[in-house]
């Protein structure tokens, strides 16, 4: 047991170091090259004005956003998989992403994309959409309580409905708005600045520790409702709290980064493969892994075909999917 948790700590420490390393590498890579020495000089305050602009106003906020979204989506997926007892659950398949997407598409359609207001209003709209989807799913599945299977089934239905509505409204848009909506829907963190980072930060700072604090409850819920009750968990209340946390994390992440597919599904699995099913360790590992995966994917997407960018969602799928397939074959 002790050797086990020692191994887990090593893995977590390794991930943390990998994140720091990727951060440093990512800082000096990009269309404008900044050498490691210059990065260091700029970080301690002696950089040129141009380097300061590149690092502090363009790269750093974007990288921090990647870390926050990666951790948020990963934890959201981990909660949903445990609460629904389904390894295929994630914010996407349960309709939270498409609820946010629908709100954004509807907003662009109705306002004809007034560019000044949308920069700050779009994330808020997306959050409203995500919460709306979650409220719909929860209230429709409520019948003397909520069962995991009903939650999943209703989630599938809501997801299908919102996805269909997205297409209906998208087809009625003019090409410019259509393109803007498509970019948003495929997940994109290229236009971020500090205001987004600051908007997302409190969600992650509050909900991440909350979820980790609830790790033992998640362990209990994962064993099934009766067992959890037997272990003294107030199943219905805890489940609602945790679902709320999952929705808020996914909603906040999606509202800033768009619907980055696959991240919420794959990171909890990778974490479980690395440190096992106990949530106290797997949740922390999930957050670290999600942050690392999205940061690495964004760094690659930004640089490999520079100056044009590969959408980060595609790189996440290739990196995460590839590693996951490798783990599946190995296990």
């Amino acid at each position: 047991m002790t050797s086990h948790s020692k191994k887990d700590r090593l893995i977590m420490a390794g991930l943390f170091i990998a994140i720091i390393a990727t951060l440093l590498i990512s800082l000096n890579m990009g269309t404008m090259r900044v050498t490691p020495a210059e990065v260091f000089q700029t970080l301690i305050g002696n950089g040129s004005e141009q380097n300061q602009l590149i690092l502090f106003d363009f790269r750093l906020p974007r990288m921090i956003i990647a870390l926050l979204i990666g951790a948020g989506m990963g934890i959201s997926g981990a909660i949903l998989q445990s609460v629904t007892h389904n390894e295929l659950a994630d914010p996407g398949i349960l309709g939270i992403n498409s609820g946010a997407g629908f709100a954004v598409v509807l907003f662009i359609y109705l306002t004809h994309n007034n560019p000044v207001s949308t920069v700050f209003v779009l994330p808020l709209t997306a959050l409203v959409g995500a919460v709306l989807a979650a409220v719909l799913i929860y209230s429709i599945s409520w019948k003397n309580g909520v069962t995991p299977i009903r939650l999943i089934l209703v989630g599938i239905g809501i997801n299908a409905a919102f996805s269909a509505l997205i297409i209906v409204f998208q087809l009625r848009m003019d090409p410019d708005n259509f393109t803007q909506a498509t970019i948003w829907l495929s997940g994109n963190i290229s236009g971020t600045d500090w205001s987004y980072t600051l908007a997302l930060l409190p969600w992650i700072l509050i909900l991440l520790p909350f979820t980790i604090y609830k790790a033992s409850t998640l362990d209990a819920l994962n064993l099934g409702d009766e067992t959890a009750q037997g272990l003294g968990a107030a199943v219905e209340k805890e489940r609602m709290l945790l679902l709320l946390a999952a929705v808020a994390l996914a909603g906040a992440s999606v509202s800033v980064g768009g619907a980055i597919a696959f991240l919420g599904l794959v990171t909890p699995h990778l974490a479980r493969k690395l440190v096992g099913v106990r949530h106290r360790h797997s949740l922390i590992t999930t957050a670290l892994l999600g942050a690392l995966l999205l940061l690495a994917a964004d760094t690659i997407g930004r640089n490999i075909l520079s100056p044009s960018e590969i959408p980060v969602g595609l790189v996440v799928s290739l990196l995460g999917g590839g590693y996951f397939v490798y783990l599946l074959m190995k296990s």
Partner: peptide
Amino acid sequence: ETPVGTVTALVGVPFFLYLARKEGRG
């Protein structure tokens, strides 16, 4: 023509949700 996938979803979802609520078993 409206994409057929959207029509199947919009026609099927209300019925599906009704059944999921009514039965809701695995």
